[in-house]
């Protein structure tokens, strides 16, 4: 399958001239890459997707698919595959006619059309469903038909708009694996819109985090998780402790929990910064190492495989995740000593 790159250059979109649905969005998606647009509802991720598909027009900026600028092409001439949130299968057509539709629009001969539809259905594991109509299929099956229909005509890129949102948890996880497999097999460029951070983390090559019409950060799941660039990204993805501090130089910060060392590039002295410390990076210490105050435990929530401890370190509220194996040590305890490594403290500029 022919994968193409997608370039968004300074895309803005506004309906009323004041509020920005998309605000200076720029992004390079490489051919064959799987990129997720992650963000809360109303953050501009779906608007951006709709502009790529051609259902909405940017107020300014340029969209290029491979070498070609597609801003002035109507949706039906863009050769982009799309899987819709509610699948948008044609209710009055059979599965075969649904999947064959894009080929029919491209004037593909009947026999060829049937063969390719069959192949596409086989790729998503739906052989033998050709004669059914959408209302006879389960949600997961409809999802697969929508996927087959989006890839049967070998589009330059495939857009997926929260495609798994309507499925139950088990099926969703199964489809995540399936989608990833199809992406790998076909090598096609995919853009995946979701508000579910774990979905984005597990599936993507890169994630673009959207907030209030802007892209806050683009990076691999690891980068986004370990080194978020903004408070928003730090809070939106994963659980977090954000500790305010002012730089003392040399990677040291003065904070409510005392002097904290961080993995840090040079930060000007006295500059204020937010320090990110993931709850699972905090560990129970044997004794009060390094003169740290004890953590006052307010409450604990047992997840089975881990224990979430909510407490205070001095005046700073702290969340800590203790692995199940260590959790027993906290039974009936109202205070414990904690520690972490300097390299696990990330400085948000």
């Amino acid at each position: 399958m022919n994968a193409r790159s997608l370039t968004l250059s300074n895309i803005t979109k506004t309906y009323d001239g004041r509020h920005m649905a998309a605000d200076d969005v720029s992004l390079d998606i490489k051919a064959g890459e799987f990129v997720s647009f992650l963000g809360p509802s109303g953050s501009g991720k779906t608007t951006t997707l709709m502009m790529i598909a051609g259902f909405q027009h940017p107020t300014s900026g340029e969209i290029r698919l491979g070498e070609r600028a597609i801003d002035n092409l109507p949706p039906h001439k863009r050769n982009i595959g799309m899987v819709f949130q509610n699948y948008a299968l044609f209710p009055h057509m059979t599965v075969a006619d649904n999947v064959g539709f894009p080929l029919r629009m491209r004037g593909v001969a009947k026999q060829d059309k049937e063969r390719r539809s069959r192949e596409a259905l086989a790729k998503v594991g739906l052989q033998g469903f050709e004669k059914r109509v959408p209302s006879e299929l389960s949600g997961g099956q409809q999802q697969r038909v929508a996927l087959a229909r989006a890839l049967v005509f070998e589009p330059d890129i495939i857009l997926l708009d929260e495609p798994l949102g309507a499925l139950d948890k088990a099926l969703r996880e199964h489809m995540q694996v399936e989608l990833k497999r199809i992406h790998k097999d076909l090598g096609v460029t995919m853009v995946y819109v979701t508000h579910d951070q774990s979905e984005a983390m597990t599936m993507s090559d890169r994630i673009a985090v959207f907030n209030q019409g802007r892209i806050e950060q683009v990076g691999t799941p690891n980068e986004i998780y370990r080194a978020p660039k903004t408070r928003f990204v730090a809070c939106f993805i994963g659980d977090s402790n954000l500790i305010e501090g002012s730089a003392l130089g040399g990677g040291r910060f003065d904070t409510p929990v005392g002097i904290v060392e961080a993995r840090s590039s040079q930060t000007d002295r006295n500059r204020r910064a937010d320090l990110l410390l993931r709850p699972e990076m905090i560990r129970i210490a044997e004794t009060s190492q390094g003169g740290r105050q004890p953590l006052k435990i307010d409450s604990t929530i047992n997840y089975g495989d881990n224990l979430l401890v909510i407490g205070k370190l001095g005046s700073q509220a702290i969340r800590m995740r203790v692995p199940g194996a260590d959790a027993r040590r906290l039974e009936g305890v109202s205070e414990c000593h904690v520690t972490w490594r300097a390299e696990d403290v990330h400085v948000i500029a």
Binding site: G54, H76, G81, F84, A88, F101, F153
Partner: peptide
């Protein structure tokens, strides 16, 4: 969305 799907598909 079925109309959008149709246009998207060509």
């Amino acid at each position: 969305s079925v109309e959008r799907a149709a246009m998207n598909l060509g």
